[in-house]
Computed example of a mutant assay.
Amino acid sequence: MMRAWILPMLFVLCGSVVATGQIFQGNLGTATALLLAFLALAGVSSPLIFPKTIGTREAQRRSAVDGRPVVFWRPGCTYCVRLRIRLGRNARQLHWVNIWRDPAGAAAVKAANDGNETVPTVVVAGQSHTNPDPEWVREQLM
């Protein structure tokens, strides 16, 4: 759990240090802009922007019932963030599995990607797709 928050905390810490340096140099506007930029980066890289994650077994069970894709992801992954943002509200319709919280999810991703934890890995109807185009994923929801 703590590992998921390392990158966002580093962004907040670095932003605070940089902003403080700018304040001491008398650049309040620059300090504010930089701090806001670092806070935005922290927010985007945090697990908070992702829908509630569930376990692999539960995701597979739900997917079998409703036919929706399962997305295996991990915090700090820029491709996962890209997928999440590009899907917009449709992201809530998918079943999200955080591979750092779920060892079975990590094993499923490794099995689909020749032993690598490459995410996002999207499973649709039993077929794995590594880092698919967000538009393609959206089409799978139709």
Rank of each mutant, 00 (worst) to 15 (best):
W5I: 08
Y79E: 13
R92T: 09
S128R: 01
H95K: 09
L39R: 11
D66T: 05
W73H: 11
G21R: 03
Q22N: 08
P134S: 07
V119Y: 00
L83G: 05
I99A: 00
A104W: 09
D66F: 08
W5N: 10
M9Y: 09
G76S: 12
L39M: 08
V12R: 02
M142A: 15
R89Q: 15
P75L: 05
C80K: 02
G21F: 01
D66Y: 14
G55Y: 02
E58T: 07
V71S: 06
T121C: 12
T53R: 03
Q22S: 06
G126P: 06
E139R: 15
R138H: 06
R68H: 14
I85K: 13
S46Q: 09
I6A: 10
N90D: 13
D133G: 07
L10M: 11
A33R: 12
N90Y: 12
N131C: 10
R61L: 13
V137A: 01
A104I: 02
W96P: 03
C14T: 10
L41N: 06
F72Y: 15
R101C: 02
V65G: 01
H95Y: 03
T121G: 00
M9A: 15
F38K: 01
R84N: 12
L34N: 08
C77P: 08
C77Y: 09
Y79C: 10
T53K: 04
N90I: 06
L48M: 12
G126D: 11
K52R: 13
R86N: 08
S128N: 10
A37H: 01
N131Y: 04
P8Y: 06
T121D: 06
C77I: 07
L36S: 14
V70I: 15
G15C: 09
K110G: 07
W136G: 03
D114C: 02
A4T: 07
N27L: 06
V18I: 15
T20A: 13
L87C: 08
C14V: 15
I85A: 13
T53C: 10
L39P: 03
A40G: 14
L28Q: 09
R61D: 11
I49F: 01
L10Q: 04
V17H: 09
L36Q: 15
V17D: 12
A112N: 07
L34K: 05
E139M: 06
A91S: 15
Q25P: 00
W96E: 00
D102H: 01
T30K: 06
S46V: 02
A106V: 02
R84G: 04
L34F: 11
M9G: 12
G115P: 07
L28P: 01
D133S: 14
R138E: 02
E139A: 15
P47W: 01
G126S: 11
W5G: 11
